[in-house]
Design a protein around this nucleic acid. Structure first.
Length: 605
RNA sequence: GGGGCCGUAGCUCAAUUGGUUAGAGCAUCGGACUGUCGAUCCGAAGGUUGCGGGUUCGACCCCCGUCGGCCUCGCCA
């Protein structure tokens, strides 16, 4: 068997005269009847092989039979290409290898789609033939970046005294948070393990155990519907540290991100990464993960709206709602139908009732900027002036406003801002704008359940100055949580944890988790807190999201070697699948008809 | 669970208002060719229009159902 002496991407003009052995896949062949050219591919690149019928007629004959994706090895001399025959598109384009010995390792069926093509292939087919899809340089590059990030993280944490420790995949189910993936226990019939949603409690227990600094690149599972940036199965870089405060955790972990961007993209991220409070993020961007690549901040105009005679605004404010909007620079180019059909549809699908708008234009009489709109008549000249000032609006701008309860207004305006930022070209896609979002509320009111829910998780520590509000004003307690956001995407989040049992018990009370429930679900953990838990905190980065940002894709499946579809299927292996009756028997499990089928049956009876 | 887009040759797409034999590029196969590099030229083969019903003289096209892919709301402590 021919053993390679170099990879395909390696040979250079300086190697001329050397005899090399290369192995790889046939990327393309050009048969001239006389000379035959093969572009040979491995993961490092392409190199041109030449077959000469005069010198090696037998090998040349074999070469003519080669087809795309056949796997071959070739021995030959590196030689310079003639003048004008270099290929500047290949790093090896100045040379070629004149083949003297050829070995066919394997043939290949014609692939279901072309590897070397710009044509976008349907994702369904790509996932079915993932091994072929992954051969494409773009996909391999994303796998390479993913590997680089993991390697940098391991090296970085190791050199800072962190230990990588594995935590169980088979864990205990807790009803809080996302839906669990369950694994039936054979030895305890009728009992189930749950796959971890994150190693949260284990890593905190490791702090109690004096591990001091822990990290793990770990798979997590949440049985919820996927999205473009979300899979049921995903990977976290999980970190926990003892004897630290929030700033310590942020400082040491942002240094990893800086290193990753430096080593992968060659970019210098200025440090310290700026911080923004949750309150400011919501006020100015409508969301806790603001895209800071462009300005176009949201402005609240509830006061001006309430004073106007526009009943939609006035009534909304009366009902406790707010009016907020944004000013699109140069947005007057949007036609009335763009706004009233296109943009309005965009926001009503997200839950808003309507979109109000003004175009900013010079007044024909006075020349001063004024507002043009079907609702301008409801605003006095003074109020219009106030609006122009509030938004900092200039001629040819477009002001868009939404009135509703604040949660809906923000939910709608945040994606609208991002969409407009991209549509108007305000957003430089090559930029990376990082921000720590801090001072999250500890709790949010859950009206349906008549209780508070944790915004982060129930083990997040409150800000000490707000502790006195635990009994009086729990909704306004800030937490010591922090999210790292880049370009509108949350790539990490963490907190300082509660490390005493008393505070932890208080939080459970607010979450309406009874002492008994708490003991049942987290008893092992609460007990650990009573045996000398040090102050500690940590963070978890989403590795998939980080690689998405680094490689510029908005599809999480592009950064996972073997991802699942929107319905949780693996098209390569066809998981999930049924199992043998014997397997079910061993687990003491019985599969019944789907509830829908049972209901149908009952209806028919 | 809800909403939206999509499904035609191996791939990417086209097909007039519902009209006669469903086309093109690439890929594949055969042939030609003295340096190509997305080779070129000549030729051939390739179709259950996702699947099942319905409407119609006639369905890729309209209707109902179903399967699958993607996006999204809910969901994601």
């Amino acid at each position: 068997m021919l053993k390679r002496t170099q990879t395909c991407g390696q040979p250079r003009i300086s190697d001329v005269g050397q005899t090399v052995i290369l192995t790889g896949w046939v990327n393309s062949y050009r048969d001239h009847g006389n000379l035959v050219f093969i572009d040979l591919r491995d993961r490092t690149g392409l190199v041109q092989l030449v077959f000469d019928p005069e010198k090696y007629p037998q090998i040349h004959k074999t070469a003519r039979s080669l087809r795309c994706e056949w796997v071959i090895g070739a021995r030959g001399a590196v030689r310079p290409r003639g003048d004008g025959m270099e290929n500047p598109r290949l790093v090896t384009g100045q040379i070629e290898v004149a083949v003297e010995e050829l070995e066919i390792f394997n043939q290949s069926k014609t692939p279901p789609f072309e590897i070397d093509s710009d044509v976008n292939v349907g994702e369904e087919l790509r996932l079915q033939y993932r091994y072929i899809d992954l051969r494409r340089p773009g996909m391999l590059n994303r796998l390479a970046v993913r590997h680089r990030v993991a390697k940098i993280a391991r090296d970085y944490y190791d050199s800072n005294g962190f230990w990588e420790i594995e935590t169980p995949m088979l864990g205990k189910s807790t009803p809080e948070g996302a839906r669990d993936f369950l694994v039936p226990s054979r030895l305890y019939k009728g009992s189930f393990y749950a796959l971890p949603q994150s190693p949260q409690l284990f890593k905190q227990i490791l702090m109690v155990s004096n591990v001091d600094r822990y990290f793990q690149i770990v798979r997590c599972f949440r049985d919820e519907d996927p999205r473009a940036d979300r899979q049921a199965e995903f990977t976290q870089i999980d970190v926990e540290m003892s004897f630290v405060q929030a700033d310590d955790v942020m400082k040491i972990n942002e240094a990893l991100i800086v290193r990753v961007f430096k080593e992968v993209l060659g970019l210098e991220i200025p440090t310290p990464i700026r911080q923004m409070t949750y309150a400011q993020a919501i006020e100015e961007y409508g969301i806790d993960r603001p895209d800071l690549r462009f300005d176009m901040r949201l402005k609240t105009i509830t006061d001006i709206a309430a004073a106007s005679t526009f009943q939609v605004f006035v009534n909304t404010v009366k009902k406790g709602g707010i009016v907020k909007g944004l000013c699109v620079p140069g947005g007057a180019k949007y036609s009335r139908s763009d706004i009233e059909v296109g943009l309005t549809q965009f926001i009503t699908e997200l839950g808003a009732k309507g979109l109000a708008w003004f175009k900013v234009a010079p007044d024909e009489a006075t020349g001063a900027v004024s507002l043009k709109s079907n609702i301008a008549k409801f605003f006095t000249p003074e109020q219009q002036k106030q609006l122009i000032e509030r938004f900092g609006a200039k001629s040819d701008d477009l002001i868009l406003m939404v009135a509703d309860q604040s949660a809906i207004v923000n939910k709608v305006l945040a994606p609208l801002r991002v969409k407009l930022g991209k549509d108007m070209g305000l957003c430089d896609p090559s930029k990376f704008e990082f921000v720590w979002v801090i001072d999250f509320p500890l709790l949010e009111w859950n009206a349906d359940e008549n209780r508070f829910d944790s915004l982060h998780h129930p083990f997040t520590a409150p800000v000490p100055e707000d502790l006195h509000k635990l009994d009086t004003d729990p909704g306004n307690i800030r937490s010591q949580a922090y999210d790292l956001v880049v370009n509108g995407s949350e790539i990490g989040g963490g907190s300082v944890r509660i490390h005493n049992m008393e505070t932890q018990a208080k939080i459970f009370d607010l979450l309406k988790i009874t002492r008994q429930q708490a003991m049942d679900r987290f008893g092992f953990f609460l007990k650990a807190l009573e045996y000398g838990a040090p102050p500690h905190g940590g963070i978890a980065f989403g590795l998939d999201r980080m690689v998405m940002i680094l490689t510029g894709t908005d599809n999480i499946r592009d950064v996972i070697a073997f991802p699942k579809t929107q319905r949780g299927q693996c098209l390569l292996t066809e998981a999930p699948s049924g199992v043998d009756q014997a397997q079910l028997d061993e687990l003491n499990l019985k599969v019944q008809k789907h509830l829908h089928q049972l209901e149908d049956k009952q209806e028919k009876q």
